[in-house]
Design a binder for these strands. Structure first.
Length: 753
RNA sequence: GCCGAGGUGGCGAAAUGGUAUACGCAAGGGCCUUAAGAGCCCUCGAGUGCAUAACUCAUGCGGGUCCGAGUCCCGCCCUCGGCACCA
């Protein structure tokens, strides 16, 4: 008799039991062996979770479940990055207030994530658009300002004409808005910045002590863009003026033949363009007269906005000199290095103002007497008012600027009439600290209102010590220079302000790949977005999880295919039958403790392999070895209770529902498998009684010997047996053996002339 | 141009310097079934070959080290990601 696995009812049943039992609720206060397992929280889009989310979150969940079974107290929280342009644009499109849209979309996300069977602690979630949350986002801004790390300044900034707001440098990709792809414009506007450049060097050196992939490290390093050199001064002939240039090659100063300064003219010219100013500068090392040119290939915002032209050693200078018939002189490097040591960075300060509605209001007040004054901490949060005219206007100010009742306030210092800032914060400020919030949600510190100058924050000190920094951060590499850099910066600042005793938030970050469909990135406009719901419904969450994890390594970009999905479902069907089939022979009954050395050896090999693979995030090979084990168990038609228990345990992180079902209902073990101990392997059982020795002649395989493992380790016996082997003898006949290479238990190689 | 990651069957992919192509998908053939579904069994890198015999050739290209190279070294080509008239 064989009942079919009814994934729908079984999965629902266990999800409810897990929830009722609070299986995944971490004991934040008393945990002895905390493991903070974090997946980047999603922004709740209207379309809901797509297969890419399912892929990434499943990877994170597999690891968390494994850690829980090794005895760690796993805290695996989830939340919503619900403030920001993404959510707001959709609300505008359907003409509904963002508040109510977010309520709906977050609910939908929760349902979807629950249906995937992830082990989240639903008692500690955060939603960045909740006043309880953004009070502390505003508190962070206040701390930044107090520390001199937030300032307002008129600057030439990137402006997206479609989103009608300014953007940070990091949010402009190839000259386009990171959000909507519109080409950004340059505008001179008065904006709030965070002084991330003060931390450029620490952001760079910190990369040395964290365990991240090269790809992400190198992206951050490139973005920070440290460049060391000298600033050299040139006298302008006949005037008292000087021109400073920045160079990384001060030893080539001898060969400089011109000076080039940035010019706003020629900006639209694609090739190198220049105009002689009629003036000359004096080379400080040899007194040469150098013509000063205005050019379009020098960037006014980098270095000093001027360079020395050394066409002999610099390709760009050579191209320019060639075009305008400037001398090209090659002299030996000078040993006399002039100028002051200087370091320049590509990194710019983080522009955090947004001329939008759906964000945390910036807690600053502009007083005619006192200048910019912070909102007192006790007055936080500054609530975002519910308004109907929330569409962005694009005149360099946000919708809140139309609401007198919002911005007309008294100065907290002197009491005179003042004006509140009407821009809101970049959504990346919200997400720059959310991982600090989770474990503190619900504590009295989290809910409290800090009093002025108390130095109080939302953290419970003991909790922070126990749970942070994050043990494992799972997320997409697309955030390499956005969220990950901002979070590191904010953590460093809070560390320096003595709020945190660590300065790297994510010592271990695993960057998963981007899931694609039909060879292309999933996107609504392409119409190739895969919704996991239909697969959960048709095959079950376990099958979907197995498929997602089996497609390829977690850091590759797998292509979603339905046929692979069916393979995963087939595998689980096989597992299910293994636990349910009636014995084929009375002498080898299932569930009755009959063992077999071949199966036993395979079982222990599999424990070893799956353990190692999970720890290395190689879920695809972990699953393939489980498939092999199941095939072997099927082949030998023996599977004792002990074997089946171990199989269920090994499968638990990947297929949590099915393994719970067989664990409790068939094997009769106590609820829950997810709190059971991860199996241990025995090396002595892995070794089998026989070994296969490969026989090579001049490195080419000519035969194999199946030997008792004892014999397979002894060179003289193996040599004799190999020579006696008919197939091998044929190759050795009449040849002189020069050398024999023997690897015990593995290989013997005859080197012949 | 600089930095990083890669290139293996029809496809996703696997291989501590030691039997390349595990595991899975697709495909073909068979069994079971009234039928469908689900299952089960067999074949499946290319070539010569009656062959489940044997051999040759295959891990982007060209060299090298080694008894032995997908793996290590040198030189190229290509793909992907990051930075970029950054001085």
């Amino acid at each position: 008799m064989q009942k079919k696995y009814d994934h729908a009812s079984i999965e629902k049943k266990w999800q409810k039991k897990w929830d009722d039992a609070g299986l995944y609720v971490a004991d934040i206060e008393k945990a002895e062996s905390p493991f903070y397992n974090l997946w980047m929280f999603p922004y709740p889009s209207a379309e809901g979770l797509h297969a890419g989310h399912a892929f990434a979150s499943t990877g994170s969940d597999i690891y968390g479940r494994y850690m829980r079974m090794t005895g760690r107290d796993v805290f695996q929280p989830i939340g919503y990055d619900s403030f920001g342009i993404h959510s707001e644009n959709y609300a505008i499109k359907i003409n509904e207030n963002p508040q109510s849209v977010v309520k709906r979309t977050t609910k939908h996300y929760e349902e979807q994530m629950r249906s995937l069977g992830h082990g989240y602690d639903w008692t500690r979630t955060v939603t960045t658009s909740d006043p309880d949350y953004y009070r502390w986002t505003q508190w962070l801004f206040v701390k930044m300002f107090e520390a001199g790390l937030a300032y307002k300044k008129k600057a030439t900034v990137n402006f997206c004409p479609s989103c009608k707001t300014v953007l940070a440098d990091e949010q402009v990709i190839d000259g386009k808005c990171e959000r909507c792809g519109t080409i950004v414009e340059k505008k001179d506007l008065d904006q709030w910045f965070f002084k991330i450049t003060d931390y450029a060097d620490r952001l760079l050196t910190g990369l040395g002590k964290i365990d991240w992939s090269q790809r992400v490290i190198s992206a951050q390093r490139n973005w920070i863009g440290k460049s060391e050199g000298r600033t050299i001064e040139f006298q302008v002939e006949g005037t008292g003026r000087k021109i400073k240039v920045f160079t990384t090659r001060p030893e080539t100063l001898n060969s400089a033949t011109f000076l080039a300064v940035a010019s706003s003219e020629g900006k639209d010219v694609k090739e190198k363009w220049g105009k002689f100013t009629g003036k000359y500068a004096i080379n400080p090392i040899n007194g040469d007269k150098l013509p000063i040119w205005e050019t379009n290939y020098v960037d006014s915002s980098y270095g000093t906005g001027a360079i020395m032209g050394v066409p002999a050693y610099d390709e760009r200078d050579r191209e320019f000199a060639g075009k305008y018939y400037i001398d090209i002189v090659e002299k030996p490097f000078t040993k006399e290095i002039l100028g002051e040591k200087t370091i320049h960075y590509h990194l710019r300060d983080w522009l955090v103002s947004r001329q939008r509605y759906w964000g945390a209001p910036i807690p600053m007040i502009d007083c005619p007497k006192d200048g910019w004054v912070t909102v007192p901490e006790k007055d936080l949060p500054i609530l975002l008012p519910t308004i109907s005219d929330y569409k962005p206007e694009g005149a360099g100010r946000g919708p809140l600027a139309n609401h007198k009742d919002f911005f007309e306030v008294k100065c907290p210092k002197c009491g005179c009439m003042a004006k509140r800032e009407t821009d809101v914060m970049d959504t990346f400020v919200d997400s720059s600290w959310y991982f600090l919030a989770y474990p503190n949600v619900g504590t009295k510190e989290w809910k409290s209102v800090p009093s002025a100058g108390s130095g109080q924050a939302f953290f419970d000190e003991k909790i922070m010590k126990a749970w942070l920094p994050v043990n494992l951060y799972f997320g997409g590499a697309e955030h390499s220079v956005l969220h990950l850099m901002y979070s590191r910066f904010v953590t460093m600042v809070l560390h320096d302000l003595k709020y945190l005793d660590f300065d790297e938030p994510f010592p271990k970050f695993f960057a998963h790949g981007l899931m694609i469909k039909d060879g292309a990135k999933m996107s609504k406009s392409r119409g190739n977005v895969v919704n996991p719901d239909e697969y959960v419904e048709k095959f079950g969450a376990d099958a979907l999880r197995i498929y997602l994890a089996f497609m390829g390594p977690m850091d590759s970009s797998p292509d979603f295919r339905d046929s692979g999905m069916e393979g995963a479902s087939r595998f689980l069907g096989k597992v299910w039958r293994l636990f349910n089939e009636e014995p084929e022979h009375p002498t080898s009954p299932r569930l009755r403790g009959v063992g077999n050395t071949a199966v036993s050896s395979k079982l222990h090999q599999t424990i070893k392999k799956v353990t190692k693979d999970i720890e290395g995030y190689k879920f695809n090979t972990a699953i393939s070895s489980l498939m092999e084990l199941v095939n072997v168990m099927n082949e030998y038609k023996v599977s004792s209770t002990k074997y089946l228990e171990t199989l269920a345990l090994l499968l638990a992180p990947f297929a949590p529902h099915l393994s719970e079902e067989v664990w409790v209902e068939i094997l009769g073990r106590p609820f829950s498998i997810h709190k059971a101990n991860w199996p241990k392997y025995d090396d002595s059982l892995i070794r089998s009684d026989t070994v296969e020795i490969v026989v090579q002649v001049n490195g080419k395989m000519r035969g194999t010997l199946s030997l008792e493992s004892g014999i397979g380790n002894r060179e003289s016996e193996v040599t004799q047996l190999a020579k006696d082997d008919e197939k091998v003898a044929k190759w050795l006949e009449g040849k002189k053996i020069i050398k024999i290479i023997f690897v015990p238990g593995k290989i013997i190689n005859f080197v012949i002339s």
